[in-house]
Design a protein around this nucleic acid. Sequence first.
DNA 1: ATGTGTGCAAAGCATTTGCAGCCAG
DNA 2: CTGGCTGCAAATGCTTTGCACACAT
Lengths: 150, 150
Amino acid sequence: MTEAVARVGVDELVDGLRSQGLRITGARRAICAVLAESRGEHLTAAAIHQRAVARSGVPINASTIYRTIEVLQVLSLVRYAHLGHGPAVVHLVQDGGHHHLVCEICGRTEDLPAADVRAALRELAERHHFVPATLHVSVIGICAECRAAG
Amino acid sequence: MTEAVARVGVDELVDGLRSQGLRITGARRAICAVLAESRGEHLTAAAIHQRAVARSGVPINASTIYRTIEVLQVLSLVRYAHLGHGPAVVHLVQDGGHHHLVCEICGRTEDLPAADVRAALRELAERHHFVPATLHVSVIGICAECRAAG
DNA sequence: ATGTGTGCAAAGCATTTGCAGCCAG
DNA sequence: CTGGCTGCAAATGCTTTGCACACAT
């Protein structure tokens, strides 16, 4: 269940921004901290917003959240996923990527290690003369807990 | 590339609605016809709307499109997919399901036969005590054509 | 100093909803 | 007839954008 993965901290994210000549502001630091603490949790922009405000004390505008996510995403530090209806979710790129088990009852998501999935799909994709870049995989079903609950 | 799949026509869709005691209206018939003609193409609600109006001549309200998609989706006759940003796309369930190769350059999608993918992922999901229902898989990358174009 | 990042407010787009009337059954 | 379906219009939810000011560098 638990495995050793490359830990991504605030510093990696902040340094990523700095390395591009981008400026480190309070808002950006807070957002990076929230993402670093999330450890790969799937957060909506709204959730990131809430937490960033809570941790920094300072009000941050929603557009700043979106603009910062956009920047981090271009730097491949975070990734978007669109899991069914509702807002998009963002997660750290910390373990070479992973995919999603989405429970259609409770809505919780669980990670599916990328390495296992990748091999199977890459072969398929190449058979279609397609070069896979980002893998976005969502398996929607019923999680153990909800099944137990009936 | 081409393979024989169970053909889904207007009748299957209309009969699906009728079998649930739902009413067959002009709008619904037009929408079903558009979907049947799409042969698994991925259509946004807006695209379905346009085509349905064009083919029936009668104006149809956008909300009717959404409400009809919803009904068809509950009957498992069509399926939603959320491929990156932008509007959701809908496609016929005609071959036991399929998944998506999405080109990040031209945006076109190609189908990935479900059967091949399913086996690999099902095992993974079950290892996580997860019962897969709908598989939603998108492999994002670069298609043969765009790669050739540089 | 300088121009990048921010807040604010407004617009944008996809989708949903309430309600009154219409039409398929 | 009668309730399910539709149109209309307004509301909603998420995200983007234009502009003027602030602050990191």
